[in-house]
Design a protein around this nucleic acid. Sequence first.
DNA 1: TGACAAACGATAATATTTATCGTTTAATAG
DNA 2: CTATTAAACGATAAATATTATCGTTTGTCA
Lengths: 165, 165
Amino acid sequence: MQNTVPARRVEERMKHFQARASELGLAATHQRRIIYRVIAKSAEHPSPELIYERVKREIPTISLATVYKNIKTFAAMGLVGEVGALPGSIRVDANLDRHHHLVCVNCKAVVDFCDSRLDRVRAARANPENFRILRYQVEALGLCPACQVAPARNKVRTQRRKHNG
Amino acid sequence: MQNTVPARRVEERMKHFQARASELGLAATHQRRIIYRVIAKSAEHPSPELIYERVKREIPTISLATVYKNIKTFAAMGLVGEVGALPGSIRVDANLDRHHHLVCVNCKAVVDFCDSRLDRVRAARANPENFRILRYQVEALGLCPACQVAPARNKVRTQRRKHNG
DNA sequence: TGACAAACGATAATATTTATCGTTTAATAG
DNA sequence: CTATTAAACGATAAATATTATCGTTTGTCA
Ligand SMILES: [Mn+2]
Ligand SMILES: [Mn+2]
Ligand SMILES: [Zn+2]
Ligand SMILES: [Zn+2]
């Protein structure tokens, strides 16, 4: 249930990452490659904390600060997206294609939702506040299959644990 | 520029709040009335911190914990909404009518966006993940008028300040 | 008006994110 | 290939955001 992205797609993303990083003058350090790969391999929109946990398996000396710094750097450069639909920690997205999200209001699972009709969403009238609208983002809020049968308990944990014994 | 709701509307909301609170067996304390009124008077989707600042003007001894506890209580009972479009602190919404939001990606301003076409947003196909979709939520991300001319600096502050001299 | 559950205020604890700073390392010029 | 150096890293403190705990106060209802 790790919601893994196909290896072929992961390699495509790694190639794109290396190419764009090079163009942007972003040093391709070992840490950055591992951090990005962890993000690219996951379809679950992982939190910084979860990314940190997984990167630590490959680089036990990695610092949480390094993970945060690089998530922010990647996001600022458009190499990853930040999903901010729920309160709590941010969720990171390697999928740069136009898409929307299914969000479980119970366990906070976030799943990609590709749908042509959602892509075409636009307001009927110009907004009276005169915002310059850059893009529309749709969230379909509801319950994931697991939470439909057992809506009581919350499955996703984003929190750090002091003692992980 | 306080983005104030008309007094008539505020009084309607207060009436509704009192009625629903009574129905729900929620004690109508002085603190709760003031906290709710602060939320009801604002159209800017204030953060808990901002609500706390304003409530303090009327109840200088109010605790930040009381403000948080009551925001959560109100939200759990459906008396207010929580807007979670941006990272950082949550934003509280007294407007319970069906509506969407304009969000400034620069200063994080959140403005109500009522639009019939957005209300009718639905996916073209059933979602392959079999979520039970409860509602669709649309955010129009862009730049508010102020940030279109001066996109550099961030105007909204949600943060506490240690020294407020 | 008194009893009691609920709510409050103070504050500690936890969770999330960013800043600081000394050390290490990737990039590149020679 | 090595020296230089700006960038990145790791450790950790600090800032910010939210929740929990607990003793005191207050609203509710008999
Ligand atoms: Mn996604
Ligand atoms: Mn609103
Ligand atoms: Zn769920
Ligand atoms: Zn703005």
